[in-house]
């Protein structure tokens, strides 16, 4: 074969390999993006689960401490605010996630105050339905912490992959954007505890 043919074959082979690599990277990014979306779904599920517990919890505590109206109102308002914010993980910005985190944080604080009140009422702590709700709340808080960690891990892995050379070329070509993730809150390294 002529020298020119060899060169042409080499170029085609190199381009082919580059094409295969590009497709492979693209598919990897898509998979990682799906992982982030899925992890976000888990985060939302757990927050929703917590929000669903709030009305029963407030009603139970109210039965024993009806004069703590301001705390109940704060919890209900924080719940309404937290459930009012929904995020599309594929286009979420840092600000949107920070806003979401802040609203959920407010609900956490309000629930913390509610549980602190409960500690002052031994009859309430002995109430079976309250204990069950408290167990569910504690389990949900633990799951939230776990789901957030998983989401952050997925988002960080994806962000690193799309910024790393030469993958960033493919990411730039096909519009793979950086994902926002949860920032650590003060004292957030340990899940909040609900204790009797």
């Amino acid at each position: 074969m002529k020298k020119g043919t060899w060169i042409a074959i080499s170029i085609v082979a190199v381009l082919g390999m580059m094409g295969v690599w590009a497709v492979s990277r693209y598919n990897t990014f898509v998979t990682m993006q799906e992982n982030v979306t899925n992890a976000w779904g888990q985060v939302e599920n757990q927050y929703q689960r917590r929000a669903d517990l709030v009305p029963n919890l407030v009603a139970t505590v109210k039965g024993y401490a009806s004069h703590e109206q301001s705390t109940f109102t704060a919890v209900v308002e924080a719940r309404a605010k937290a459930t009012g914010i929904t995020i599309d993980p594929s286009h979420a910005t840092e600000e949107q996630l920070a806003q979401f985190q802040a609203s959920q944080g407010e609900l956490s604080q309000a629930l913390g105050r509610l549980m602190a009140i409960a500690e002052s009422y031994p009859e309430l702590q002995a109430n079976e339905s309250f204990r069950q709700l408290a167990d569910q709340l504690e389990g949900t808080e633990n799951r939230i912490a776990y789901a957030r960690n998983v989401f952050n891990d997925c988002a960080k892995e994806y962000n690193a992959a799309i910024h790393r050379f030469p993958g960033n070329i493919i990411a730039g070509m096909f519009g793979f954007e950086r994902k926002a993730y949860f920032e650590a809150e003060a004292g957030a390294e340990k899940a909040p505890r609900v204790e009797f």
């Binding site: 888990q42 167990d135 504690e138 389990g139 633990n142 799951r143 912490a145 776990y146 789901a147 899940a191 505890r193 204790e195 009797f196």
Partner: peptide, 10 residues
């Protein structure tokens, strides 16, 4: 694996 379910007591 676990997602954090369960309960704890002191």
């Amino acid at each position: 694996s676990s997602a954090g379910g369960g309960a704890g007591r002191k």
